[in-house]
Measured scan of single mutants.
Amino acid sequence: MTEYKLVVVGAGGVGKSALTIQLIQNHFVDEYDPTIEDSYRKQVVIDGETCLLDILDTAGQEEYSAMRDQYMRTGEGFLCVFAINNTKSFEDIHHYREQIKRVKDSEDVPMVLVGNKCDLPSRTVDTKQAQDLARSYGIPFIETSAKTRQGVDDAFYTLVREIRKHKEKMSKDGKKKKKKSKTKCVIM
């Protein structure tokens, strides 16, 4: 069974824990209790493949930012979460993405942009803004509501699919490099 290491990042209060708990335990946590770091595991079937999701729910508070490099190193894919009623959390996505790329030393890291709290009427981040940002990053965008469960499975499952595509691409690139290195030079 394939294991996928997913990391949920975003500013404090955007609903990272609520999304994760909704996926794992099928219930909505409405009281806000700032996370330092929590880890969850769940076995699911995605596109006919049974897999184990190892999900790291991270601290959004700035005082825990020193811990970010460590979990970013171990993560295979990242859910970059903002709240649709919090423009600052949307603007912060850029910083999370840049930090992930720096730590992973790669421009090509599996990510999904997630606009959470889409059940709320007080939207300050337009869907088109988020779609445009995701398009500019070359990553999928999904709106979710941890409260109603809308888009929750889709967000995590899409990230797994992005990781699969990335692994497939990397193995193809690896095979191309191996083929090239088999060419021999004969000096007579």
Rank of each mutant, 00 (worst) to 15 (best):
K104C: 12
E107C: 13
C80V: 11
D69K: 03
G77H: 01
S65D: 06
G77F: 08
M111G: 01
E63Y: 06
T87F: 13
A66K: 04
E98H: 04
T87R: 10
D92E: 15
E98S: 06
V103S: 07
R123Y: 12
R123M: 13
K88S: 13
N116W: 00
M72D: 00
Y71I: 01
T87C: 07
F82A: 15
K101N: 10
Y71N: 00
N86I: 03
K117R: 13
R123C: 14
K104I: 09
S106C: 14
P121T: 14
V81L: 12
E91S: 08
I100F: 06
V109Q: 03
R123K: 13
E107W: 13
G77T: 03
V81W: 00
G75I: 03
K104N: 14
C118S: 11
P110Y: 01
V109C: 08
V125H: 12
S65M: 09
E107N: 11
G115R: 05
T74E: 15
E107Q: 10
E76P: 01
N116F: 01
G77M: 12
S122L: 09
E76Q: 09
E63S: 06
K88E: 13
V81K: 03
P121L: 11
R73V: 07
D92K: 08
R123W: 11
S106P: 06
V103N: 05
M72R: 01
G115Q: 07
N116V: 15
Q99G: 04
A66G: 11
S106I: 11
E98G: 04
D126E: 11
S122P: 10
E63W: 02
G115H: 06
R68K: 05
I84Y: 15
P121F: 11
L120I: 10
F90S: 10
F82H: 10
R68N: 03
K88A: 11
C80H: 05
C118P: 08
T124S: 13
G115Y: 07
E91A: 10
R73I: 07
L113M: 09
F82I: 11
S122M: 09
D108W: 07
S65A: 12
I84E: 15
T124K: 12
R73F: 07
V114A: 04
S106G: 12
R102V: 07
K104A: 11
K104D: 03
D108V: 08
V103K: 04
I84L: 15
I93Y: 06
K104P: 03
E91M: 07
S122I: 09
A66I: 06
E98P: 03
F82P: 00
R102T: 09
F78T: 01
L113D: 00
S106A: 11
E63D: 11
M111F: 11
F78S: 01
R102W: 04
L120W: 11
H95D: 12
Y96P: 02
A66N: 07
D119H: 07
L79Q: 00
V125T: 11
V109R: 03
E63T: 06
V112M: 05
K104T: 11
Y96R: 04
F90K: 10
T87W: 08
L79I: 11
T124A: 13
E76H: 11
K101R: 12
V81Y: 01
D92C: 05
D92Q: 07
D69F: 01
D108G: 09
D108L: 06
R102N: 10
L79T: 01
F78C: 01
V109N: 02
T124P: 13
M67S: 01
T124I: 09
A66M: 08
L79C: 05
H95C: 07
K88Y: 07
S65V: 08
R123H: 13
K101I: 09
M72H: 02
Q99L: 12
C118F: 12
V114F: 04
R73K: 10
P110L: 03
N116P: 01
S65K: 09
P121R: 09
G77A: 14
S122H: 12
P110K: 03
V125S: 13
E76A: 09
G77I: 14
D105N: 14
P110M: 03
S89W: 08
I84Q: 15
A83K: 06
F82M: 13
C118G: 11
T124R: 09
V125C: 13
D92S: 09
M111V: 05
D126Y: 09
K104L: 10
A66W: 05
H94T: 10
L120M: 13
V81N: 06
L120Y: 14
V109K: 02
A83C: 06
N86C: 08
D92W: 10
K104H: 11
F78D: 01
K88M: 08
Y64F: 10
K101G: 07
V109M: 05
D108P: 05
M67T: 03
I100T: 03
H95K: 14
V81F: 12
N116E: 08
N116H: 15
Y64T: 00
S106E: 09
I84C: 15
D119I: 03
V112Q: 01
E98I: 01
K104G: 06
K104V: 10
T124E: 13
L79E: 00
S89G: 09
R73E: 07
S65Y: 07
R97P: 04
L79K: 00
E76W: 13
N116T: 15
V112E: 00
G115I: 10
D119N: 09
V114D: 00
I100G: 01
D119M: 06
K117C: 14
R97Q: 12
V112L: 08
C118V: 10
F78V: 02
D126N: 10
C80Q: 04
V125D: 13
N116Y: 01
G75V: 06
F82L: 11
E107K: 09
E76N: 06
F90M: 14
E63R: 05
G115M: 14
R68V: 01
C80R: 00
H95G: 07
S89Y: 01
L113H: 01
V125K: 11
D119W: 03
Y64I: 00
V114C: 07
Y64E: 01
S65R: 08
K88G: 10
E76C: 13
D105L: 09
F82Y: 13
K104R: 14
D69I: 01
C118H: 11
K101W: 05
R68I: 01
D126W: 08
P121G: 14
C118I: 11
P121A: 12
I100P: 01
D69G: 05
L79V: 09
Q99R: 05
F82W: 08
L79R: 00
L113V: 09
Y64P: 00
K101V: 07
V112N: 00
V112H: 01
R68M: 06
L79W: 01
I84W: 14
D69W: 03
Q70C: 08
K88Q: 13
V109I: 12
I93R: 02
L113W: 12
G75W: 05
E98W: 02
A66V: 12
G115T: 07
H94P: 02
G77Y: 05
E63M: 05
K101L: 12
N116S: 14
A66Q: 12
T74D: 15
T74W: 13
M72W: 01
I100H: 01
F78N: 02
L113S: 03
A83D: 15
E63P: 05
H94L: 14
M72L: 03
N86F: 02
G77N: 01
D126M: 09
R123P: 13
R68S: 07
V81R: 00
R68L: 01
G75T: 05
M111C: 05
I100S: 02
E63A: 05
Y71L: 01
E107D: 12
R73T: 09
V109D: 01
L120S: 13
V114Y: 02
L120V: 13
S106Y: 13
P121V: 10
V114Q: 02
D126I: 08
K117V: 15
K101C: 10
V103A: 07
V112R: 00
C118D: 13
D119S: 06
T124N: 13
V125P: 12
L120A: 12
F82E: 03
Q70P: 04
E107P: 10
F90E: 09
M67L: 14
V109L: 05
P110T: 04
R97I: 15
D119V: 04
Q70G: 07
K104Q: 13
R97E: 08
D119C: 06
A66F: 07
L120H: 12
Q99M: 15
V112G: 00
A66D: 06
Q70I: 02
Y64M: 05
M72N: 03
R73N: 07
E76G: 05
E91W: 05
G75L: 02
K101Y: 07
